[in-house]
Design a protein around this nucleic acid. Sequence first.
DNA 1: TTCAGAAAGTGAACACTGTTCACTCTTGTA
DNA 2: TACAAGAGTGAACAGTGTTCACTTTCTGAA
Lengths: 236, 236
Amino acid sequence: MQTDSPSEETPADRRRLRVRESIISAAERVFAKEGESGLSIRRLADEIDYSPSAIYKYFGSKDELIDELKEAFFERLLAKIDGSSSADRPFLQRAKACVATYVDTAVTRPFHYAAAFSSIKHSLPENGGGPLSWDGFVTTSKGQAFGVLISMVTEGQELDIFDPSLDPVMAAKSLWAGSHGLAQLLIHMPHFHQLVPEQQPMTAKDFIEFHADLQIRGLLKPADGSGNGRLPGQNS
Amino acid sequence: MQTDSPSEETPADRRRLRVRESIISAAERVFAKEGESGLSIRRLADEIDYSPSAIYKYFGSKDELIDELKEAFFERLLAKIDGSSSADRPFLQRAKACVATYVDTAVTRPFHYAAAFSSIKHSLPENGGGPLSWDGFVTTSKGQAFGVLISMVTEGQELDIFDPSLDPVMAAKSLWAGSHGLAQLLIHMPHFHQLVPEQQPMTAKDFIEFHADLQIRGLLKPADGSGNGRLPGQNS
DNA sequence: TTCAGAAAGTGAACACTGTTCACTCTTGTA
DNA sequence: TACAAGAGTGAACAGTGTTCACTTTCTGAA
């Protein structure tokens, strides 16, 4: 199928890529609206006017197809939070925006984000089941997005804003957990943000910012000299 | 089937309850080990030596059965964090323990916890799809567990430890999101806790406590006395 | 231009799934 | 003892992901 010069793209290649792309885009359309349960191979085949078995000439399995959707999503997410963290604004604003953007992007494509954390026992395909390796992780989009968080923490420490005694990786993981949790709750409990005893107006965006604020607050450098700011470990 | 006196329990009632219980316990056993995907009606029927259709004489659907497992789990969780929050210890220790217990309990039964937050668009069956009502929510086990968090925040404010300018409900939601996020990440990314560049010993328990610490820190009363959204006096 | 081989595409089948329904068997009561 | 209600069953339906032998289409070389 390939010609002698490997960089050349034959008509067959283009045709194959076009069909592959049509599968992906149909899958993306259905998945974004109805999620994994709404996306069946037969339905997909119907939408692109091919037989179900034809799909398997392009993707090894349904999971492999969905993995591609998730990976594409995390690339978008990475680009967004990377943009937030490198914008031309004061540090604390950027830090908060970074968290807020993460949550906001996740909520915008709930099925993608939820699916990315839906499997139990093996979240990294390339390392199925084994202990999560650092080197393997940081090359994924997910890992790179995490790297943005780490950089943010170290920058905050260099600026003498964040507590220097914190391990940046652990702090970033904590930050990730906090953002992830809010995203998940907003996704899985509609109107979570306006869940209050007295009905007061509160948009999801407002609550996301409130949460980001609190998250960042936990990392702030404790007031100097006072034993109050730092959380006492054993006593209190 | 009921006798004239409604409080009396006939042998038929007991028999029915026994079969029902055997279904639940078989389901619990399979579900705890393999999760929703490993639990099929036919397999369940095999395990209890009944036909698949017999199950439908006891539960309206597979979802209804699983809902019962999830509800039972949240009742256990509620009891546990309620115990943590009311133990005879200093406040900050209790507060941290409360968060840590939540995460720990979730991680211990990963499938139960994950399943409880797996559906998108309607997390409260009794309110399917509509806006989440406060009154409906606080009566569920989930809602009551949340109530424990709110009480903890208000107590911290009364003790002059937590920032009094924070809305207790919003702070509790933020806390919940943070705990939920860590639980989810630990469940869905095995060895998340020991995901570090240099391999240094770090147990899940240790990381949970670190995270709980940071979460609580975010709620502390700022040392300089200013309220929400304070900026550090240092350069930024 | 012809022709072999590779790739693309297909339809039927397999082994599953949750669920339903007409049916039989068992049980408790009048 | 007769009868009705409940318990339990087997077969079937509609759906799923996936496989495989098969045909059709295309392409690169003789």
